[in-house]
């Protein structure tokens, strides 16, 4: 089995691991790093549950080789809390019921996070376009759209207050 040295940051922490060349990023995160927030919901790129952010962009961890992330910054849902406080997106998904069963949620929140970095003030169409690779089977997406809006509103209100 071929293995390589993988040096990267995961959720802000520098890591050096020797990993098999054929290991997927999602398996690296779940089994080597122990960050099980990232989920596997399909057999490859069809559901978005494994969405993480690599160097600022959304990416399917289930179609990405871990070794191809050498030198990169990987962020998962576990990275969003700051000093034990949930991010605005996390609070909004909780309060607006953007999460029901919660299985698609980590991927949905990371796709939303990527969206807000790209488009800080999205309208409904922006949200629909940018979350369109993430399948949710519980909500019908209505409350997911509301959650993203609520997060933006909370962030803007906070910024206005500051």
């Amino acid at each position: 089995m071929s293995k390589s040295m993988l040096s990267l940051t995961v959720n802000g922490r520098t890591r050096d691991d020797v990993v098999p060349d054929n290991m997927l990023l999602v398996d690296y995160l779940r089994e080597v790093v122990g960050a099980t927030g990232t989920k596997v919901g399909c057999d490859g790129g069809e559901c978005g549950a494994c969405t993480v952010i690599v160097d600022g962009k959304a990416r399917h961890a289930c179609l990405t080789l871990a070794v191809s992330c050498n030198g990169k910054a990987v962020e998962t849902v576990e990275s969003l809390e700051r000093n034990g406080r949930m991010s605005a997106l996390q609070r909004a998904f909780n309060e607006k019921l953007g999460a029901q069963c919660g299985f698609c949620t980590p991927g949905m929140i990371m796709a939303s996070e990527a969206l807000l970095r790209h488009t800080p003030n999205p309208n409904d169409d922006d949200i629909r376009r940018e979350l369109a690779a993430n399948i949710c089977r519980c909500t019908g997406y209505v409350k997911i759209i509301e959650s993203v809006h609520a997060a933006v509103a909370e962030t803007s209100a906070k910024e206005a207050a500051e």
């Binding site: 054929n22 398996d27 070794v67 050498n70």
Partner: peptide
């Protein structure tokens, strides 16, 4: 853990 065949990866 997903099953993948063994392969070596190069990054030119």
């Amino acid at each position: 853990m997903e099953y993948l065949p063994n392969f070596k990866t190069h990054r030119p």
